[in-house]
Amino acid sequence: MTTHELRGLTTGEPAAHRAPHRSARPPVRDLPAAGHRVLQLLGPPSERHLAQRLNAILEVLAGLRAATQIQPLVDPALFARLLAHGRLPGTRHRIGTLHLCHPTDTALEASTTIQSGPRVLALAARFERNRTGWVCTRFHLLAPRTGPLRMVNQRPSAA
């Protein structure tokens, strides 16, 4: 059996066999403000992650989820608007295929269709990166118009 013994360095002995100490933490300037969770700020969220966030917002609008659960995921102004918004028509919904656009490095825009009961709704959302991660800053649920369609460029008929 082999025995091992640890001994400390004497004052004049070089420490050539030791690697220099490196901190595993990122520099302080890259960390978000105090009190926030440290999130990965490198790239935009995946399509699946965005769909989960949009689904959570839709569940709040349908009354299936507490609004406080999405508060860290949305902008404060949008959160106040979502609380004042009425309920979604129908309680079950299904998100269609997401279409993504990257207008800048710190912004992401998504659009999709929502199947809510017999109705199909359009959804447009904007996500922006801030010090705490990616948050939803715009959320527009567009319902189809009811009533007859009017032609915009139609000239009045001569009577």
Rank of each mutant, 00 (worst) to 15 (best):
H99Q: 05
A122S: 14
L9V: 14
Q71R: 15
A143V: 02
T146P: 00
Q154M: 10
Q71P: 05
G35K: 01
N153T: 10
R150N: 10
A56V: 08
Q52R: 10
R53D: 10
A110N: 00
R129G: 04
G133I: 07
L78P: 05
E59P: 01
P14I: 00
E47G: 12
G63S: 15
R87A: 15
L6V: 15
E13Y: 10
G12A: 15
I95D: 05
Q115N: 04
H4V: 08
H21G: 12
E109V: 04
L78D: 05
T132E: 13
T104I: 00
I95V: 13
H99A: 11
V74W: 01
Q40G: 09
F139Q: 00
R126I: 02
T2Q: 11
M1T: 13
T137P: 02
G35T: 06
P44C: 01
H17V: 09
G133F: 05
T97N: 11
G8R: 14
A24N: 06
S23H: 06
V135S: 03
R131L: 13
V60E: 06
E5N: 12
R126C: 08
R94S: 11
R131K: 08
Q71I: 07
L58I: 12
G86P: 02
F79L: 12
H102W: 12
R138C: 03
A84D: 12
P26T: 05
F127E: 03
L121S: 06
H17S: 15
R92M: 09
R53V: 08
R129Y: 01
L123E: 04
P44G: 10
A77R: 12
V28L: 15
A107H: 04
A56I: 10
V135W: 07
L42V: 11
R29Y: 09
R22K: 09
F79K: 00
V28F: 11
L31Y: 05
G63A: 12
T104Y: 05
E13V: 10
T137D: 02
P32A: 14
H99F: 04
V60F: 06
P26V: 02
A143N: 06
L50G: 07
I95Y: 01
E13I: 09
L100R: 14
Q40T: 09
R29F: 13
A16K: 12
P44S: 12
T104E: 13
A19T: 13
A77H: 14
D30P: 00
S157T: 05
T146H: 11
V74T: 06
H99E: 14
A33Q: 14
H93W: 09
E47M: 14
P72N: 10
H49D: 15
H85Y: 04
